[in-house]
Write a protein that binds this DNA or RNA. Sequence first.
DNA 1: TAACAAAACTAACGCTTGTTAGTTTAACTT
DNA 2: AAGTTAAACTAACAAGCGTTAGTTTTGTTA
Lengths: 189, 189
Amino acid sequence: MKTISRKEEIIRVASRLFYEKGYKTVSMRDIATAMNIKAASLYNHINGKQEILSEIILKLAEEFTVGMEKVVSENISAIEKVEKVIEMHVDITVNYSEALAALNNDWMHLEEEDLKAFVKMREDYEENFRKIIKQGIDAGEIKAYHPEVILFSILSTLRTLYLWYQKRGKIDVNILKKDMVSVLIKGIK
Amino acid sequence: MKTISRKEEIIRVASRLFYEKGYKTVSMRDIATAMNIKAASLYNHINGKQEILSEIILKLAEEFTVGMEKVVSENISAIEKVEKVIEMHVDITVNYSEALAALNNDWMHLEEEDLKAFVKMREDYEENFRKIIKQGIDAGEIKAYHPEVILFSILSTLRTLYLWYQKRGKIDVNILKKDMVSVLIKGIK
DNA sequence: TAACAAAACTAACGCTTGTTAGTTTAACTT
DNA sequence: AAGTTAAACTAACAAGCGTTAGTTTTGTTA
């Protein structure tokens, strides 16, 4: 039986607050109050505010990186790869919709080491996506728009999905996947 | 000859800093330092930090509202209306790319009155856009996906455009408009 | 040049921030 | 029941925050 540790609980509560108000606006006292303890008690479980942020963001970034690498290595067409990427985004969004806010809005508040690691992962991710699209265009599966514009359009939608997923009553995952694939793929095929 | 007032200069400098680090992270001393003056001097021109934020956001929101109402009132097809909306977004993005960061990321830090006004404008805007899409579906001009999914997909892309416009060397406005219309419209038509 | 207004300055305020040190309580293990 | 450890507590710190009051500098007009 897996019980969640106090540290994990702090991170979960912090994610929710960061989602609502942003990293800089949420104080350690805010997080503590939400857990019915005092701010100083948090330090029995974590090293500081900064650590909470990097745990949230880097763990998620890892998830995206691993997912993307898996898709890239599969022996399927470019369009199918794009579909898989979309489905991965939907899966992660559904499971971590609150943590995604920090990744999207507060990554610039990471410190030196972590910031560099995050930016690297992000760039690699985009580069992998870009390659898939180019490969699809070369194979004649995807319309020959500027790859950059296609990449931007799809990624923008996927990255903002967590906002809409929260706002409108958490639709069924499979329906959501189907809708996203439809709207995002049909336009470029 | 129109010279910009000191107040306008403060707002311009603040916009740039908010774009880079976010409203909460930027202090009045940061803004002052960027202008080579002391923080207290800012108060000769503005009433407070909060006023800077609301001037930035509400002025932009007004711009969107007016633009949308103009499009809605035109006697053209739904698809043409969507095109006009996309072009309006591109125009505003090009002219106010830094101020757009505050509107997108820091609107929740507005206070009571201003916050209510902003949310109202935003909702009205989305509702107008939604109506255009539904009208297009009814007229058979737009594919019969869920209107909400189409709305979300297009708006996400447009709202994030300011990030990409800054990152990749400020492309020519007309080319950008053409690309955006292509990618966003062809998928739903 | 004297007068005036605009816009800078210094100094300080009350408050909140993240974090630490040291102590007490609560919950298991033996 | 005694001992041990995890996790809470109180109290305080140094630094940074937005803002105010009062003063000095700067630049323009009479």
